[in-house]
Amino acid sequence: MKPQSPLLRATVPARRLIRRSRLLQIALVLAIWLLGEGLVRLSGLPLPGGLIGMALLLWLLLSGRLSVFSARRGADWFLADLLLFFVPAALAVVDHREFFGLIGVKILLVILLSTAAVMLVTGLTVELSLRWRQALGRAASSSR
């Protein structure tokens, strides 16, 4: 048990409450996001506020200032239906009628083939270098 400052000890009931309530955890994630957006506005950094918020939450977790149980259920709520948040943006195509012709087919072909190529190259690079590293590790440990 780490010695806790009186200030930290005073937050214990609040922490206990957050661990039990998914709604409060959702509010916590939202608050961290808003903080990230605020920091981006103030500093003028060319980065999305959600990213700053993610770095902030990761720092809180890694430094032990926040327990993962105080945010996990809230985070899961956002991640479970992540796909839904993309749907409205995808509808932008409705206003680009020129894409519903030959040029659209061409663009789709570029996207389809290029995406497949990127996936194959990345997947195979990671998989093969992982196996290679593991083989190296085994060779090093058996020669010892």
Partner: peptide, 9 residues
């Protein structure tokens, strides 16, 4: 935005 924050978990 908050979903990006959630990826920290």
């Amino acid at each position: 935005g908050p979903a990006t924050v959630a990826f920290a978990i």
